[in-house]
Design a binder for these strands. Structure first.
Lengths: 189, 189
DNA sequence: GTCTATAGGATGATAGAC
DNA sequence: GTCTATCATCCTATAGAC
């Protein structure tokens, strides 16, 4: 039985609202009303709207970094690494599908410090992904397409998984993982 | 020599700002200031902020519908249709890369009438795409993965092309088309 | 931990002068 | 076609009572 603090309730309801309307279109009043309290009461639990955003976005970015570090220290082929990253990203998205929307669409509204932190995490994630792809091409594991095109195609698909999860969410996780790996790695023909 | 009306200037600058900050975070004052005029002057050219959004989003949605209709009336294989849709979407994105961001992220801020129109166009585009994929699987042109996974993977990649276009935009269009079709259709191994 | 009251400023939009 | 002036409303956030 996990105790849910008021702060966690605020973050949860804020994530729902931010996802549906975007960070800027959601007011502190909206968040408070959804919780059945007044806007001013929120400030007893958090310092302001920007703190809420940071507490939603940064933990996710850190989780992705953790997944990448795990994969990087494993001694497997480039293809094996890509497959694990896809599976890890599917797991993380399904666990935090609201937050994923906000990470994608509202990171630019983070305060300066958090924005820098976020962009550093994101850039180094991408750079590591790029290097794995380059290595796969060099070692003739992958077809020789432009590495940037491969990187973009995989990351776009994974980053937007949250959009699709709710529409057709009935698909069983293991079927999703299997078919997503198959489609992204082997193509469709 | 194409004459650019003030209205077109407003739409252009608004698209730039909406893309960078999101529709809700951009004020009429912001748009006016970027044009070197006062906010109230904007209303001589457009009826309000929501009209600007509609004039940016809907023409793009209609262009995609046009492309789909073109492909549907062509007598080629399912694979051929998919390839043409990918190329068409790349062309359209490169021509309207600012607007594409807004289509993806701010359609929910359209007024009721435009939102209904937009969602109808978008849903039928997706449904047509889905049917082409289903047909390809039935006729053994494609590998048997879940059609929804294929649809999602291709559409996510294409819809986010605008994000990547500016980062690594140096890639020549024909190389991009060729490699993107290759990656999406044949996979990476 | 929530409330009322309020500060101080931004917002979309209109009226009317030039 | 742009301006100034303005309205009515909303915004984030704080102070202080209970």
């Amino acid at each position: 039985m996990k105790a849910v603090t008021r702060k966690e309730e605020i973050l949860h309801i804020a994530a729902l609202l931010f996802k549906a309307n975007g960070y800027s279109a959601v007011s502190m009043r909206d968040i408070a009303t959804a919780l059945g309290i007044k806007a001013s009461s929120l400030y007893n639990h958090i310092s302001g709207k920007q703190e809420i955003l940071g507490l939603i976005v940064l933990p996710i970015a850190e989780e992705f970094t953790k997944g990448m570090n795990l994969v990087l220290t494993t001694e497997i082929s480039s293809l094996g690494k890509i497959k694990r990253l896809i599976e890890y990203q599917i797991d993380t998205t399904l666990r935090h599908s609201n937050a994923m929307a906000i990470v994608n669409n509202d990171w630019m509204h983070l305060d300066t410090e958090n924005k820098t932190k976020f962009l550093n995490l994101r850039n180094s994630y991408e750079e590591n992904f790029r290097n794995i792809i380059r290595q796969g091409i060099t070692q003739n594991e992958f077809n020789p397409a432009h590495p940037e095109v491969i990187l973009f195609s995989i990351l776009s698909t994974l980053r937007n998984l949250y959009l699709w999860h709710e529409k057709r969410g009935k698909l069983e996780v293991n079927v999703l993982k299997r078919d997503m790996v198959k489609v992204l790695v082997n193509g469709i023909v």
